[in-house]
Amino acid sequence: MIIPHPLLGPRDAQEFTYLGDASLINRPDWQSENAMQEFHDYLYLRDNPAGLHRELWFHEQGDRSWLVVTRNTMTHEITQVELASDVARSHGRSR
């Protein structure tokens, strides 16, 4: 597979390390009332769609960016690649 890196252009997927569902960005608040439940769902109940999947890849043999790749799990077609830090900020993550 080839991942079009938003900064570096097309790169072979072998340069990357895969993590999984991009919802791993949305780490719950540890002080929430249902923190245990929320952390359980966050870590263990991820999206596993047959179709478009937003997922995290780390450019380990490259610039060390974490990317959010939108990829179809039926065809492996990649339709969007974003810097994970941008996605994280857009989800309200900060410090």
Binding site: S65, W66, S85, A88, R89, R93, S94
Partner: peptide, 10 residues
């Protein structure tokens, strides 16, 4: 790096 970029990007 995951923590820095994805959890606490600022």
């Amino acid at each position: 790096e995951f923590a820095r970029q994805c959890l606490w990007p600022d």
